[in-house]
Write a protein that binds this DNA or RNA. Structure first.
Lengths: 333, 333
DNA sequence: CTGAAAGCGCTAACAT
DNA sequence: ATGTTAGCGCTTTCAG
């Protein structure tokens, strides 16, 4: 490996000067600096970030933990984070918790040993506790809030997004609107449920427990919940589903039951995707600025690392996208 | 930060002994070892991998560069790699080249500074050259071959996969089978084209240049190519598309042109996806063992790192999945 | 079986 | 403006 020593020797200066020339240019004479830069270039010098990190106790590295990299939503968040990090010369250590608090904890422990300068995490149900592993580390919670006091969060306005979706359904005349909500240990699920309730209330409709079923944020959970919801007597004529994966499950369930969308069932999902756009009928959804969310979280974190104090919580708006999966309610027999 | 010093002190031994106790258990008395382990546990000791890596010149870290993390195929590869790495206590540094040789090179440079023990890369068109940045590093090429002599590769049998797909189309009586191939700088594209040609040849049909159009591996490229291919006179009655993203584009193009699948156009894509399964009609595809590919590449790399010499190249079989997007050719007017 | 000491490559005091 | 020196936390000779 080409070390700073080598560069220094080639440039005829001490290692210290070479170091300064490379990243504190103002502290070094222009001519010397040029010689060092030249030498570094010719030798193909790459700093050993391990040594640097050891010395400075900080590694221009940040951690990212998402709950499911196979979910395009999370992949997009990750890309937003990575692009923003790279733009500032930071390297991202990415982990996958699979929604499992234990995996999240292990990820945090591994991460800890890498002396990251900050962390972006999509919380699981037990992030509050797990974060003690990296106590004191600048942290931004992404997409969800762990509930930790004073945490920095970058999220979408879930309540109003859900409210708008359900209001749309209600506006079409639906009176039995079901909801497949996520795990209520997760803030997004709670907030979206809240939006559902508010829309009902605004329309003067009662909240009916039987129309709301939990899911596990995955396709299977959504399918099972939808199957149950749509098989009961007095089945809902419209469904609002709390995340993208469960929406897939709900569509599958409707197909299994021979229910036409939107003829027999109106459907709105949360989070847009190519799948939602290209399936037929194209799905109406509450769309999120996913990539921006990731970028913003990263920029926020980097500011935090730089010592700026910032508002604790950022909310981005959602946008309702009307496509072909909803239709006016028809009077049932 | 809790250091090994602290653990040593708490256990009443020297740092050296504490170090040994933790990862060369055989070199230390059982009782001492227990005391050290106990202390480490109580204090919540996490080794500083930077210091360790600096000392041992190797960091239990491997690099992974994929070309498009937003593509579910790559996300799945990544998950396979990560899971396998984690199972062996390795941390993955993941980068995204976006198919751009320059980004790939920058990723390699950054990676280099982290002293990784190995690299898994989905090559771009210029990986051969770029790999000089990490010369000497154990490397496995995943999904594609850069063309580097003696490289270790983990790929799918593209030729036979493509051959089977096209033979299927031919068997249905199609005589004008088009292909949207990827960038021919990429080995998968070349191999899939090769399979297409072999199937034609086996059926005694001539190869017609005009039926084969390049794409850029993304949705737009596929759409444009399909639009062109399907608008010409003597349009093909069947299409074989060389990757998942371009297949989406081809479907979109067919819709734009008012072509029914499979009535007016039979379609087979390469690589399965949820989208292919749930769109209607469900798409027939050449399915790949994507997750296994990632896992295998990682296991292969770890063996390499451990000094085992292995066969240079692994090929996994594909599997043809018949669904509803193909139909017998009807005689055209 | 355990301890003392050196050093991985780098940067930050401190000195000049 | 530059060089000298020390030390980040760990592992590894080398002694004992």
């Amino acid at each position: 490996m080409i070390g700073l020593q080598d560069v220094a020797r080639a440039a005829g200066v001490s290692p210290a000067t070479a170091s300064r020339a490379l990243h504190r240019p103002d502290l070094v004479a222009l001519r010397t600096r040029e010689r060092v830069e030249q030498a570094a270039l010719e030798l193909g010098y790459r700093p050993n970030v391990l040594a640097r990190g050891l010395r400075t106790r900080g590694s221009r590295t940040i951690g990212l933990i998402v709950t499911d990299i196979l979910n395009p939503f999370h992949a997009t968040l990750a890309k937003g984070v990575q692009d923003a990090a790279e733009a500032q010369g930071y390297t991202v250590l990415m982990f996958n918790s699979d929604e499992q608090p234990d995996k999240e904890r292990r990820a945090l422990e591994t991460l800890h040993g890498h002396l990251p300068m900050g962390l972006i995490v999509v919380p699981t149900a037990r992030t509050r506790e797990n974060l003690s592993v990296v106590a004191g580390l600048p942290t931004v919670e992404l997409d969800r809030a762990s509930g930790l006091d004073g945490a920095h969060t970058v999220m979408v306005d879930n309540v109003s997004g859900a409210r708008e979706a359900v209001a749309h359904l209600l506006g079409l005349g639906h009176r039995h609107v079901g909801m497949i909500v996520g795990n209520l240990d997760i803030s997004t699920a709670r907030e979206r449920l809240q939006g559902y309730r508010e829309a009902l209330e605004a329309a003067g409709l009662p909240y009916d427990d039987g129309l709301v079923l939990p899911g596990d944020h995955r396709e299977q959970g959504g399918r099972l919940a939808a199957l149950r919801l749509l098989s009961g007597r007095e089945r809902p004529t419209a469904l609002f589903v709390g995340n993208n994966e469960m929406t897939v499950g709900a569509v599958l369930a409707a197909r299994e039951l021979g229910l036409e969308i939107p003829g027999d069932l109106s459907l709105v999902g949360f989070d847009d995707s190519r799948w939602a756009q290209t399936m037929s009928p194209a799905l109406s959804v509450v769309s999120q600025p996913t990539y921006d969310l990731g970028q913003l979280a990263c920029q926020h974190l980097l500011s935090l690392i730089a010592g700026q104090s910032l508002p604790g919580s950022v909310r981005l708006p959602t946008r309702m996208v009307y496509r072909q999966s909803t239709a006016p309610a028809t009077v049932l027999a």
